[in-house]
Design a protein around this nucleic acid. Structure first.
Lengths: 166, 166
DNA sequence: TTAAACTTTCAATAAATAGTGAAAGATAAA
DNA sequence: TTTATCTTTCACTATTTATTGAAAGTTTAA
């Protein structure tokens, strides 16, 4: 297989993975494009490679920077901004986990906390309360675990995991 | 807070969580509705509770059954089908992990395997190969870990995890 | 300063996804 | 069988989400 062909297929596959994870296709395609290229790319490079508009390229590079997956890179003597993807797979996984915890896990935990104070006492209410409690305990433990993972705190990660899995 | 109010908020929150995970809002709302109710509900109950059409209710209950999150339930003397959500949070997590591994992780691993045979040798090609390799190793390890988790095989899960985290 | 080079914003538009409901397909009691 | 009850399908419509591109905003070299 040729390198260029492989790059295209990689961009394709990574884009598809992203969209099944609630990340838009362009964002993960840009990420893949930058991972596939060692040299920093400019907005124009990205526009040309993925055939997308300036606005779209701009929005999604900025989203990638917010997620901590991509960094801006200045090249001496050039006024353009260039972009590079982080190279370490583990670091990438940590950033993604961190961001998703913040955006998705935390809000649901908050919701579940609110739902805890139900002032009814029938059998149905009690069983609902129990389920909410189970879910809350579970999501909180997972959240804690993810937090330790993102901090790369192995010692506490293990302790937390052992506690969680019993 | 009243029980009915809490149920509604729960359905809301769970639906939102689902949609940020690439699961459609209705599917996760139905799941939440069934979790919030101990008694089996019929398609008509679901239609009424969530104000959705028969077709939609049918498609999404079937999706939930495919995911292993909901089971059909027959009530003696009634020809309708009823639905109940599993009650164990861990079991639920395992089913979700299992399904997502199959749908998302496996295809990307396959893709990465295909990309391994690049017959070019420049510096750029080598660095691309390395990244693909790193990603492949990482995703494969994660996949194996998830597999052990879904099989509830704690012993192997720990070994696998320790190996992965070094 | 000023003006060229670049980045960002956002209203309009396009594309993708989800939902509807009526009709066709099953199933099982009579 | 036949028929009433329930389930599934699918072409159409509605809703949501992503993308465009031109205009406004910002930065920096001269």
């Amino acid at each position: 297989m040729k390198l260029e062909e492989a790059k295209e297929e990689f961009i394709q596959a990574w884009g598809a993975l992203g969209s099944s994870w609630g990340i838009n296709r362009t964002m993960s395609s840009i990420h893949a494009l930058l991972m596939a290229n060692n040299e920093p790319l400019s907005t124009e490079d990205i526009m040309a490679a993925l055939q997308i508009s300036r606005g779209n390229a701009n929005m999604n590079t900025r989203a990638l920077i917010e997620w901590g997956l991509v960094k801006k890179h200045r090249i001496a003597g050039d006024r353009k901004e260039f972009f590079v993807a982080g190279k370490d797979v583990w670091e990438m996984a940590r950033q993604i986990a961190k961001e998703r915890r913040k955006r998705e896990l935390n809000p649901v935990i908050e919701s579940l906390e609110n739902l805890k104070d139900i002032d009814e006492n029938g059998e149905e209410a009690e069983s609902f309360k129990k389920r909410i409690n189970d879910l809350h305990d579970f999501t909180s433990e997972i959240s804690g675990l993810v937090d330790k993972f993102t901090r790369n705190d192995r010692n506490w990660f293990y302790r937390s995991l052992l506690k969680l899995l019993g």
